[in-house]
């Protein structure tokens, strides 16, 4: 792991309206196989990706939110939610499908600086 790069996936888009959230998650799962230092950041509407209780039957689309719960099995445990984005959407940590670390904007910015590769979709 010593020569592993720090990869951060920045998610700023809501699920279902566009495919970005789903295809971003597909990259994250593949990255797990490369033994890199992976973290996921959820900002702006990206926090909606983690909302519990998604029911997609009515839109005839696969509900991919359970896959966030599988991340732990891939040793991806660094999930960060920006507090200001969460608050602005009337959400709290209890609303999320997985345990997350809530960071202030300033903390999130600092974490971004430390990354080698930042991928946003």
């Amino acid at each position: 792991m010593s020569d592993a790069k720090k990869f951060m996936f920045v998610n700023r888009k809501a699920p279902y309206g566009t495919i970005y959230a789903l295809e971003s998650l597909e990259v994250v799962l593949i990255t797990a196989a490369f033994d890199q230092d992976v973290s996921l950041a959820f900002l702006d509407d990206g926090v909606y990706q983690l909302k519990k209780g998604q029911q997609t039957k009515g839109i005839e689309t696969k509900n991919f939110s359970p896959a966030y719960r599988a991340l732990e099995d891939y040793d991806i445990e660094k999930l960060y939610v920006e507090k200001e984005a969460m608050d602005a959407r009337g959400l709290s940590e209890d609303d999320f499908i997985v345990p997350v670390t809530v960071l202030s904007r300033a903390e999130m910015g600092k974490l971004m600086d430390e990354q080698d590769v930042v991928l946003s979709f």
Partner: peptide
């Protein structure tokens, strides 16, 4: 595959 993207990052 997507691994090619990760490899590019590395």
């Amino acid at each position: 595959g997507l691994g090619q993207l990760v490899e590019a990052g590395i």
